[in-house]
Amino acid sequence: MEIERPTDIAAALVALAETPDATVLAGGTDLMVEINFGHARPDRIVALRRVGELKELNGSIGSGVSWARLEQGPHRALAQAARTVGSPQIRAAGTIGGNLATASPAGDGLPFLAALDAEVEVRSATGSRLLRWDEFLTGPKQNALEPGELIHSVVLPEEIPVRQEFGKVGVRNAMVISAVMACVMRYDDGRTRVAVGSAGPTTLRARRAEEMMSAESSPSEAAMSEFQRIVSEEVKPITDHRSTESYRRHAAGVVARRLLERCLEAG
């Protein structure tokens, strides 16, 4: 095994250009599990821990920003999601870029990105591209990265609603992979966004529910129930060892409705 430990982005991109099949290592919280159990033995590793630029958090979010950092804000729902990622030890190491690279439907940070229609800035030695979250996440554990590319940052839109809430359903009260999770946002003009995780092959948006609720300026109880029903209808969960298709469907709707209630209560 060879390892490159670049300290700036340019060197990282050169290293990746020279060895496009290299495995990128950031927080290690996913890759090291594969390595520890003998499921992965990368020949070449490019370790990004020392690249300061990737840890920047200003308008955009550097891919190397840790969950521990995101737990502090500034984005309310992302901070809520960050608090549920693994354990404090995992949050100290794991990064938002890792969530994107692993592209698990259970990635806790992804519903926030989906709700905002965030873009992923991908860089290589020859240039950069911006991919919307759903262009980037192409399937379960699949993403649009090409050899030689790395995730530079997440670019958020200029308009970010203050009313944003995240919730995650798991069987344990901490350190748990979600059975289902959701992020709901409500803009001042009533536009509503709903993103759901662990309820389909990738993080998904409940667009019919969004459309229905966006038209409601002060939703009645019946409208809230309808919203819940549509979310449950729209998600595409499966049954596995963590939960069942029907429970996930039910819980997705309930959580989305509750998060919307919180958004509305926030005024």
Binding site: Q80, R83, T84, E165, F166, G167, K168, V169, G170, R172, N173, A174, V176, S178, M181, V255, R258, R262
Partner: peptide
Amino acid sequence: PRNLPGGTGLTTTPEY
């Protein structure tokens, strides 16, 4: 949330 069902997942408020 640390004293509620669902814990830090923030699923649950006391009225539920």
